[in-house]
Design a binder for these strands. Structure first.
Lengths: 136, 136
DNA sequence: TAGAGCTGGTCTCTTTTTGAGACCGCCATT
DNA sequence: AATGGCGGTCTCAAAAAGAGACCAGCTCTA
């Protein structure tokens, strides 16, 4: 990642990249995508892209995540190298989570998708309403 | 979507877009994202971006999806307005699935993410191996 | 000094989502 | 008459996610 996205591949090449691999299960692209396509991963990455946060801060920032899923999602993000976890030996030890370079490099493409969602959520809502009405 | 993505928002604005809404559940951006962030949705969208496919063709193209999940994922994509479903009254009626304009407009941002995944899957694999080794 | 609260978690239990695979009627081919 | 493709639905088991109790260690307040 040198900051610019050039040489976009053709659609069929991109699709092949998603179905590559000796057997289907270990296609590298799907392997990576699945890690950032969980229910909470994108939200946490976007939050940490702003600035590092402590565990409790993230909990308050994202009030509808359960503590269990916050722990687990952060663990998974750390394992895949997107998030750095640092423990500070304060009286009640505090833990700070921050994005690594790899995590930061994901921000741009993720932002595109979020921005697309923002631009198109009206269209999606209308489509949904029309579909449900037609199903009467 | 007029083909160009301009005026990128600041990180904090993007995060706010993901946490907007009276209560957390109906944040528009998360509502939309959740629809395209399933296990199979991105793959099917990428496949249909190439050209329309019939049900059985998609099944063969993506051999590790179960019939149940293919049915359901296509249904959800149709409901959200990404996919058009057309039934042809042939002897065994055939059903063709194709991307709508809305679905096509999603291709660009999705492609960015896939491309990022392709570029960075080595880094992710290394991070994972290092993490697992450190956990000994 | 006793109680309550904050720190970042783990553990158990229940509900929801997903996956595997059997089954369906219809029709064409063999 | 049996086989296979067509696009599904239905059932049941497994996996993932959510709710909430519990934990030790420390600090502040009454």
């Amino acid at each position: 990642m040198d900051g610019k996205i050039v040489n976009l591949k053709s659609k069929i090449e991109i699709y092949k990249a998603m179905t590559d691999g000796a057997n289907f299960a270990d296609c590298p692209v799907r392997d990576v995508i699945s890690g950032i396509n969980g229910k909470w991963s994108p939200l946490l990455v976007m939050a940490l892209a702003e600035k590092p946060y402590r565990f409790g801060e993230l909990r308050r920032l994202v009030p509808d995540i359960s503590q269990r899923m916050l722990t687990q999602t952060l663990y998974d993000l750390q394992r895949d190298g997107y998030v750095h976890r640092e423990v500070f030996p304060t009286k009640p030890p505090s833990v700070e989570y921050s994005l690594t370079d790899l995590g930061r490099s994901m921000f741009a493409p993720l932002q595109m998708l979020v921005q697309w969602a923002e631009l198109n959520h009206d269209a999606v809502r209308e489509a949904r309403a029309a579909f449900d009405a037609a199903q009467t």
